[in-house]
Amino acid sequence: MSLTRVHNLSISLDGFATGEPQSAEAPFGHAGQRLHEWMFRTRFWDQGGTTGVDDAFAERHSVGIGAEIMGANKFGPPGWQDDPDWKGWWGTEPPFHTPTFVLTHRPRPSIDLEGGTTFHFLDASPADALEAAREAASGQDVRIGGGATVVRDFLAAGLVDQMHVVQVPLVLGRGVRLWDGLEGLEDSYDVEAVSSPSGVVHLTFRRALA
C-alpha cells in the first residue's frame, strides 16, 4: 500500500507552523517567510542554491508522490471560498503536478490547471480524504501538504506513515501550533534528528514497526 507522507513542514521553536493573522497580503501572518528561509536557499528551490543537508531533505518532497491533500488555509487566504475565480496562490501552473485534494466545508467543482494539477474540493474526514487521494495516486504515495491543522488531524487519526518536520530557531509566540493534542506521539514513531549548519534541525518520524 502507498505511504502517507509529510515533507518540509517548518515550525518555530515553540511549535508554530504559521503566524497570525493570515491574509492575502501575509499568508503566514507575522511569521512572514522566516520559517521557510532555509528552503529558499537550497538548490531544490533555486538552481543556484546550496547542495548540503537542507537540500538533501528538501528534495525528498516530490519523489514518488501521486496525490496531495491540503487544508483550506493552504489553498487560499481567509474568505477565498467567496471568490469563484480564486484558483490558489500558484498561478496557472501550480507546483504539485498531481491530483490535489483541498479540504473545505464549502466544496466547489474541480479545477484543471496546467502541468497536471487538478484541484478537487472535499468536505471529508481525514480517512475518507485519504481513500480518495490513494485512488487518484495510482499506487504512489500521498503527501499531506499542510497546513498544521490538517497535518495534526491526520496524525491524531493515525494516518501518517512518515513525517519530516524542520525546527527553525525562532520564537513566534502565537499562530497555529502543530503539536497541540498530540501528547505521546513519539511512542508511535522512530524519531531521528539531524542538525544543519543553517541552524535548523530536521526531524524525521517513521512509523514504528509493531
Rank of each mutant, 00 (worst) to 15 (best):
A133E: 11
I111E: 13
D128K: 11
S138V: 03
P77R: 08
P94S: 00
T98Q: 08
V63F: 11
P107E: 12
S62T: 14
R106H: 13
P109W: 13
E68L: 15
G76W: 13
H97S: 15
H61Y: 04
E59L: 02
F96W: 15
T92M: 11
T98C: 03
G64I: 04
A133H: 12
P126W: 08
D128P: 01
D55S: 01
A58D: 11
G139D: 11
G116D: 12
G139R: 07
E59S: 09
I111C: 02
F101S: 03
A56W: 14
G88C: 06
L122W: 15
W89L: 02
D123Y: 11
G66P: 03
G66Q: 12
K87P: 00
R134D: 05
R60Y: 09
D123L: 06
S62M: 11
G64E: 12
E93I: 08
A72C: 01
G139P: 07
Q81C: 07
S62V: 11
V142W: 15
D112K: 14
H120A: 02
W80F: 00
L122F: 14
A133Q: 08
P94I: 07
A136H: 12
H61T: 10
H97Q: 14
G71M: 12
H105S: 03
G115S: 05
H120N: 10
P107A: 03
S62D: 15
N73Y: 09
W90K: 08
G139V: 09
G115K: 08
T100I: 00
F121I: 05
E59I: 06
P78T: 00
P94W: 13
F57L: 07
P77C: 01
A127C: 00
D55V: 02
H61S: 07
W89N: 08
A124E: 15
A56L: 13
F121C: 02
D83C: 05
F96N: 05
T92L: 11
D85F: 09
A129V: 00
G71P: 05
G116A: 04
L103T: 02
P99K: 04
Q81P: 00
D141W: 08
D128S: 09
A67V: 04
S138G: 01
G66E: 05
E59P: 03
A136L: 09
S125L: 05
F121S: 03
G88L: 03
A136G: 02
E59W: 04
G71T: 09
D82E: 14
G71W: 14
T117H: 06
D54T: 02
L103A: 01
A58P: 07
D123H: 15
G91Y: 11
P77G: 02
F119H: 13
Q140C: 01
V142L: 08
D82P: 00
K74M: 13
K87C: 08
L122C: 13
D54P: 03
P77I: 02
F119S: 06
D112R: 12
W90P: 06
E131Q: 14
L113K: 10
D128Y: 04
G115H: 07
H105L: 07
M70S: 04
P109T: 10
T118R: 15
R106W: 09
D128A: 11
F121Y: 14
F101C: 01
P77A: 14
E131H: 11
E114S: 07
G116F: 10
I65V: 15
H120L: 06
G64P: 04
L122V: 09
H61E: 14
I111G: 05
T104A: 01
P84S: 04
T100A: 11
L113D: 07
G79W: 10
I111T: 09
P109C: 01
P78G: 04
G79C: 00
E131I: 04
